[in-house]
Deep mutational scan, measured.
Amino acid sequence: KKKIKIYIENENGEKKTIEIEVEGDIDEIAKELAKKYNVKIVKIEP
């Protein structure tokens, strides 16, 4: 498992940072999160 930080922006332009532990393809997981929460991924840090 890797701990990563995902910087997101919602439709109101509010920026947030999510810190999660992931296993597998980080890009795939980030895309799923973006779709699920309707946010834009700004940056992903390993």
Score class of each variant (00 low, 15 high):
Lys40Leu: 09
Val42Ser: 03
Ile44Gln: 01
Ala34Glu: 15
Lys31Met: 09
Ala34Ile: 07
Asn10Glu: 11
Glu23Met: 12
Ile20Lys: 01
Glu14Val: 11
Ile18Met: 11
Ile41Ala: 02
Glu45Val: 12
Glu11Asn: 10
Lys2Phe: 14
Ile8Lys: 00
Asp25Lys: 03
Ile6Thr: 00
Ile29Gln: 04
Glu14Phe: 10
Lys5Arg: 13
Lys36Phe: 07
Ala34Met: 07
Thr17Arg: 03
Lys36Pro: 00
Lys5Ile: 10
Lys35Val: 05
Lys15Arg: 13
Glu45Arg: 03
Tyr37Gly: 14
Tyr7Val: 09
Gly24Cys: 06
Lys15Ser: 14
Pro46Cys: 14
Glu32Ala: 13
Asn38Pro: 13
Asp27Ala: 10
Val39Glu: 05
Lys2Glu: 06
Asp25Asn: 11
Pro46Leu: 15
Lys2Asp: 05
Glu14Gly: 07
Glu11Gln: 13
Ile26Phe: 10
Lys16Phe: 15
Gly24Val: 02
Lys35Cys: 07
Pro46Glu: 14
Ile41Tyr: 03
Ile4Asn: 01
Lys3Val: 08
Ala30His: 02
Glu19Pro: 00
Lys40Phe: 05
Ile20Asp: 00
Ala34Thr: 06
Asn10Ala: 13
Leu33Asp: 00
Asn12Met: 13
Lys43Thr: 06
Ile18Ser: 00
Ile29Cys: 11
Lys35Asp: 08
Glu11Met: 11
Lys3Gly: 06
Thr17Glu: 07
Glu45Phe: 08
Asn10Ile: 08
Asp27Leu: 13
Ala30Glu: 02
Glu21Cys: 14
Asn38Trp: 04
Glu19Asp: 07
Ile8His: 01
Leu33Thr: 01
Lys15Asn: 09
Glu32Ile: 12
Lys43Cys: 10
Ala30Gln: 03
Ile6Phe: 13
Asp25Pro: 07
Glu23Thr: 12
Lys43Trp: 14
Tyr7Cys: 07
Ile4Tyr: 15
Thr17Ile: 14
Lys1Leu: 13
Ile29Asn: 02
Val42Pro: 00
Glu28His: 08
Lys35Met: 06
Ile29Ser: 03
Lys15His: 13
Lys40Met: 11
Asn10Asp: 13
Ile6Trp: 01
Ile4Gly: 02
Ile18Glu: 01
Ala34Pro: 00
Lys40Gly: 05
Glu45Trp: 10
Glu14Leu: 11
Gly13Phe: 04
Lys2Arg: 14
Val39Trp: 15
Gly13Met: 04
Ile4Phe: 15
Ile26Gly: 04
Ile6Glu: 00
Asp27Tyr: 13
Asp25Val: 04
Lys5Gly: 01
Ile18Lys: 01
Ala30Arg: 05
Pro46Phe: 15
Leu33His: 01
Asn38Gln: 07
Lys3Cys: 12
Gly24Leu: 02
Lys16Arg: 14
Glu9Lys: 03
Gly13Cys: 05
Ile41Gln: 01
Lys36Trp: 05
Ile41Asn: 01
Lys1Asp: 02
Tyr37Phe: 10
Lys31Ile: 08
Ile44Glu: 02
Lys15Gln: 14
Ile20Val: 11
Glu19Gln: 06
Glu14Asn: 07
Thr17Tyr: 10
Asp25Tyr: 04
Ile26Glu: 04
Ile6Leu: 09
Glu9His: 02
Ile41Trp: 03
Pro46Asp: 12
Ile44Lys: 01
Ile29His: 04
Gly13His: 05
Ala34Gly: 06
Lys31Arg: 13
Gly13Tyr: 04
Glu23His: 10
Ile26Asp: 03
Ala34Lys: 09
Tyr37Lys: 07
Ile29Ala: 11
Glu23Lys: 06
Ile18Asp: 00
Lys43Gly: 10
Tyr7Thr: 15
Asn38Asp: 06
Lys5Tyr: 07
Val42Arg: 02
Ile41Cys: 06
Ile18Pro: 00
Ile6Cys: 01
Glu11Pro: 09
Lys40Thr: 14
Ile4Cys: 08
Lys3His: 11
Lys1Ser: 10
Glu23Phe: 12
Glu21Gln: 06
Asn12Pro: 01
Lys15Pro: 08
Lys16Asp: 10
Ile6Pro: 00
Leu33Met: 09
Ala34Phe: 03
Glu32Leu: 10
Ala34Tyr: 04
Tyr7Gln: 06
Ile26Trp: 13
Val42Gly: 01
Glu23Ser: 10
Asn12Trp: 14
Thr17Val: 14
Lys2Ile: 14
Lys40His: 11
Ile6Met: 06
Lys15Thr: 14
Asp25His: 05
Tyr37Trp: 12
Glu45Thr: 06
Glu23Gln: 09
Ile41Asp: 01
Asp27Arg: 11
Asn12Glu: 09
Val42Trp: 01
Tyr7Glu: 07
Gly13Ala: 03
Gly24Glu: 02
Ile4Trp: 15
Lys16Cys: 15
Ile6Gln: 00
Glu19Gly: 01
Val42Cys: 10
Val22Met: 11
Glu11Thr: 09
Asn12His: 13
Glu11Gly: 09
Ile8Thr: 10
Lys5Leu: 13
Ile41Ser: 02
Ile29Pro: 00
Ile8Gly: 02
Thr17Phe: 11
Ala34Gln: 06
Ala30Val: 15
Ala30Asp: 01
Lys40Trp: 02
Lys5Asp: 01
Val39Met: 08
Lys1Tyr: 07
Gly24Thr: 03
Tyr37Met: 15
Glu11Phe: 11
Glu14Ser: 07
Lys2Ala: 11
Gly13Asn: 03
Glu23Leu: 09
Gly24Pro: 01
Val39Cys: 12
Glu45Ser: 06
Glu32Pro: 00
Asp25Thr: 05
Glu9Gly: 01
Ala34Trp: 02
Ile20Trp: 06
Pro46Ile: 15
Glu14Ile: 09
Asn10Phe: 15
Tyr37Val: 13
Pro46Arg: 10
Ile44Ser: 02
Lys43Glu: 05
Glu9Arg: 04
Lys43Met: 10
Lys16Gly: 15
Ile6Ala: 02
Lys31Cys: 08
Ile41His: 01
Glu9Phe: 03
Glu9Ser: 04
Lys35Ser: 05
Val22Asn: 05
Gly24Tyr: 03
Asp25Ala: 04
Lys35Asn: 07
Val39Gln: 04
Leu33Ile: 11
Val22Ala: 12
Asn12Tyr: 14
Lys15Cys: 12
Lys43Val: 08
Ile29Gly: 01
Lys35Gly: 01
Val22Asp: 06
Asp27Ile: 10
Lys36Ile: 08
Glu11Lys: 10
Glu45Ile: 10
Lys35Phe: 04
Glu11Asp: 10
Gly13Glu: 02
Ile20Gln: 01
Ile29Trp: 12
Tyr37Ser: 14
Tyr37Asn: 14
Glu28Phe: 07
Glu9Ile: 13
Ile4Thr: 03
Tyr7Asn: 02
Lys35Ala: 06
Lys31Pro: 01
Glu21Pro: 02
Tyr7Leu: 10
Lys43Arg: 13
Tyr37Leu: 15
Asn10His: 13
Glu9Trp: 04
Gly13Pro: 00
Tyr37Pro: 11
Thr17Lys: 05
